[in-house]
Amino acid sequence: MDWILAILETLLFIGAAPLLAGWTKRVKCRLQNRKPPSLLQPYRDLLKLYRKQPILPHPASWIFRAAPYVVFAATVLTAAFVPLVAVNLPTAKIADVIVLVGFFALARTFLVLAGMDIGTAFGGMGSSREMTIASLAEPAMLMAVFTLAMSAHTTNLSQAMNYVLDTGLVLRPSFVFALGGLMLVAVAETGRIPVDNPATHLELTMIHEAMILEYSGRWLALIEWASQIKLMLYGVLIANIFFPWGIARDFSPESIGIGVGMIALKLALLAILLVLSETAFAKMRIFRVQEYLSFAYLLSVLGLLSHIILEAARVHH
């Protein structure tokens, strides 16, 4: 029974990811006074791409063909063990948040290899930029995760959420810093403004699009879908770790229903926040990204320090 629920949750996760992308695009259009496309447009785009015949570039090796499947599988596996509507599911017990960072790294490695595999200038450029950004973003993310782990005494996401729920509302300085750091990392890792622009092809500043420029058809559909799931993964991580209220703690239909409603609400709000920041800020020069990410790292380290300095238990003599 638990396993069926876990599989259903994963299916909901990957099924709802294009919806979140559609919602984000819709809010953005509204803010920019454009006529928004339908909420279901990302599904139609994926379907259209899936039906098209993929084209294989001449110099492509097996890596180019395998990469979309590896990327998609790694992302779906990650989605399987991140608690979306309920904690204590059996899948959440399998892996902790360090595995999550590892899966992201696996997906990224294959995407980067595929970008370099075809030997075009754009692919190599995008790959090198992606790796530069990842090598700076990953330490910041791990530090934010360790800050959480120090408070909750676990790196398992489900247990950490249980801990936050059990202690109730506590104003922790370390969580505020970790939240800030994780949000900055999320923006960088999912390729949003100000680090990368998701809405553009063929621009000299692009990162993600430069790597997947040669992909077409169902391979492109898989990669696009995976990046939509990745955006949702970061959203769910932020929403459920720092504001886990409303998530189902038992498997009764009512609490599952509340869990679905609450996570939808939280993600919708987070998407609005993301779009507001995307509208307010301009894209950075690529060489300013390291300053941005070192700030994210600083926030996470300050979170770790403030946990030790301000929150730690004191021994009375």
Partner: peptide, 21 residues
């Protein structure tokens, strides 16, 4: 005494201390 034993106002002071830093 850890932060979970404090009342919300004391926690807010510590939070503000973090933000000042």
């Amino acid at each position: 005494m850890s932060i979970t034993d404090l009342d919300l106002y004391s926690q807010a002071i510590l939070l503000l201390a973090g933000l000042i830093a």
